[in-house]
Design a binder for these strands. Structure first.
Lengths: 192, 192
DNA sequence: GATTTACACTAGCGCTTGCTTGGTTGACCC
DNA sequence: GGGTCAACCAAGCAAGCGCTAGTGTAAATC
């Protein structure tokens, strides 16, 4: 009835929960459904999580932290040019969105189901991620690669990317790399 | 316990339901909450709607139909140039998104709560709307205003626009017109 | 060998949910 | 002035919900 560490067991349970949250939505996923998917009884679930809310928080936290790590790594490894960084960031974003898909779909759709404290905590993580984007976009603006208001450009780009979870089919002909390329081509102003 | 016409009373009830769906989400909005907002008792609600699902369907249908009407009107009234049509379409999209906001937020967030038949019916409406976008984008491609894959460009643009419901503040300094302008400027390839 | 710990179980409490039933009201109609 | 009908109400049912209490047990720790 307590314990809130981050054991490997808990990580696995979190991953399974994410899957169900995507399929049915948070509110329609019952603790009994979660328990069954995890191979335990509903009562045992509360040994690992304080309450159902905490499962949602764990799912979103995991996904956002991964995104942050991957984006930072991508920026570290790429060329220093504004265009390369823009490209790397877009590709990293799409890759997390598609490999770690469940967690991100949950983060996008079920954010409002978080209670205020969890939302406050997680929005700091999200802000850290968006700060990466704004830095990259500032560089691109300074390099004359794109034009416009940095706030608006950042939000338009992230909107276009996040929206992909609604229509992108990983089994289709387009790779995440293709998408990133196409998007960057669309917004950069060179001779084309 | 029956009746499913589209009386003016039902229209008004639908509008009020949309508001609650936005505030609390579909699943957390109880029929008792809906009834109270409407000034009736929960049982009476089922005189106007077959079940709770039908209220959701009504909300989304109303919003999508309005968007279609407004977009068509905007295209009829604007210049015939590819750029003017692109601009008009983006502005119309943002205006519906912001004036008829409740219904659209519900459509974006609660789409997956629709049962299969309703989803099938409504996706035809949505397809009709998206077809307008693809026609406009085809024109813009043909005019050399933008470059790239028509499918991808359409989805990127709609993603950027739809995402605005997450961050746009109507009380802020930017008008829908500003947003439309900035977005079009970002994706069109002229000398800038 | 005794104690603790981690994890799971059974059983069910208290509450809310969507929806139904059977009946009342007042406006309109011939 | 009896009949019709949309609109509403009071009362409550059956099901499902999140969560708790108390117990069992095998492995780890002392």
């Amino acid at each position: 009835m307590n314990v809130m560490n981050d054991s490997p067991r808990r990580k696995e349970l979190t991953r399974q929960a994410a899957q169900l949250f995507v399929q049915a939505g948070f509110d329609r996923t019952t603790v009994r459904m979660l328990a069954q998917e995890m191979g335990i009884k509903s009562g045992s679930l509360f040994h690992h999580f304080r309450d159902k809310q905490e499962i949602l928080t764990a799912v979103i936290e995991e996904g956002t932290q991964n995104a942050l790590i991957i984006a930072k790594a991508a920026l570290d490894q790429c060329d220093n040019s504004a265009e390369a960084r823009l490209q790397a960031m877009a590709r990293a974003h799409l890759e997390t969105l598609l490999t770690d898909r469940n967690a991100h779909v949950v983060a996008l759709y079920e954010w409002r189901r978080l209670d205020p404290e969890a939302r406050d905590h997680l929005s700091h993580l999200r802000d850290a991620y968006e700060a990466l984007w704004e830095a990259v976009i500032d560089d691109a603006l300074a390099a004359g690669l794109i034009h416009g208001d940095r706030f608006l450009v950042a939000r338009f780009v992230m909107g276009a990317l996040n929206w992909t979870v609604r229509w992108y089919d990983p089994a289709g002909p387009r790779s995440p790399d293709d998408l990133a390329h196409e998007l960057i081509a669309m917004i950069t102003h060179r001779s084309a």
